[in-house]
Write a protein that binds this DNA or RNA. Structure first.
Lengths: 156, 156
DNA sequence: TTAAATCCGGACATTCACATCCAATTTATG
DNA sequence: CATAAATTGGATGTGAATGTCCGGATTTAA
């Protein structure tokens, strides 16, 4: 449904949003998000090329958000990694249909659209602010489950 | 987003619904839906194993729906081919979270759920009944664009 | 019984998502 | 300048999704 890469990308940007506007190294992001490090670097590279993230090489460098968490929606991230694939033209290739879809494809696109709207209506800041108060278990309520919320250790 | 196989499966069942309860050969379905014949047979096989379709071998045989178009939803077909992948447990593997998702995964699952509901709320019969009246172009209004609506030629 | 129609199932090919590894490049700092 | 920290990009591997091919099994009908 949603690809593994989308899952990884969202974990990464949520974590980055939680420390925004600070930069984090790929290793730090990997540790926090539990994403395989070698693959994470590819995902982050893609997000940078799409203008979601920016990077700084060298000592003290790392990855950070281009926009603020208030300005960045879940949809922005999803579309940067793998566009949702709205159905805009007839998949059967009937050019005569133009922008008008048959009843089947209209409903398929409608379903994709409601998902798109759900993603568009939520910013990273809103995810972070969600207290999720009704849940009593350990570590629940963190924007990204299992992530040590805004770990503030600066060694050296 | 939605896989190619889902697209093919929906085309096939919509066509079968349009002639329900009659059976159609794989070749006839392939011609009507523009799906590669060799692959279509695999897709149909899967739908049969999932209890969506039934088949009859030999001369005069073919494929037909198990249920009526009124009783079959788009979601039934989608789930038979490739389950939507609702998020029921923490993808980070934190068992302690149990059934409670963190804010990020709660929103991701919510988005999948709205799509699931959109598919669940539509039967094949409703797709077929959709007149799509506002559209003036050729062949528009057919439940599956490009399909000769309930082609009634019986040769021999 | 034979033949034709039709589905069934396995083997194979291709492409892509996912993932790993490592050398090259950039940058801050002593 | 030399070194260590960090990203970048290329090469490569693996498995799943997509797609093709064909012989075998089943059923109807002549």
């Amino acid at each position: 449904m949603l690809s593994q890469t989308v899952e990884y990308a969202l974990r990464a940007v949520i974590f980055l949003a939680s420390v925004s506007p600070d930069a984090q190294t790929t290793s730090e992001i990997g540790r926090a998000t539990q994403v395989p490090l070698a693959y994470l670097s590819k995902v982050l590279q893609g997000l940078r090329q799409e203008g979601i993230l920016k990077s700084q090489r060298g000592v003290g460098g790392g990855i950070s958000l281009v926009r603020t968490p208030q300005e960045l929606t879940i949809l922005d991230v999803v579309n940067a990694v793998e566009p949702l694939g709205r159905i805009t033209t007839c998949p059967l290739g009937l050019a005569a249909h133009g922008e008008h879809l048959c009843p089947l494809h209209r409903r398929m696109d409608d379903a994709i659209q409601v998902m798109e709207e759900a993603f568009h209506s939520t910013t990273l800041a809103e995810v972070l602010a969600d207290p999720n108060p009704s849940i009593p278990l350990t570590n629940i309520g963190a924007p990204l489950c299992g992530v040590p919320a805004t770990s503030q250790k600066k060694k050296k």
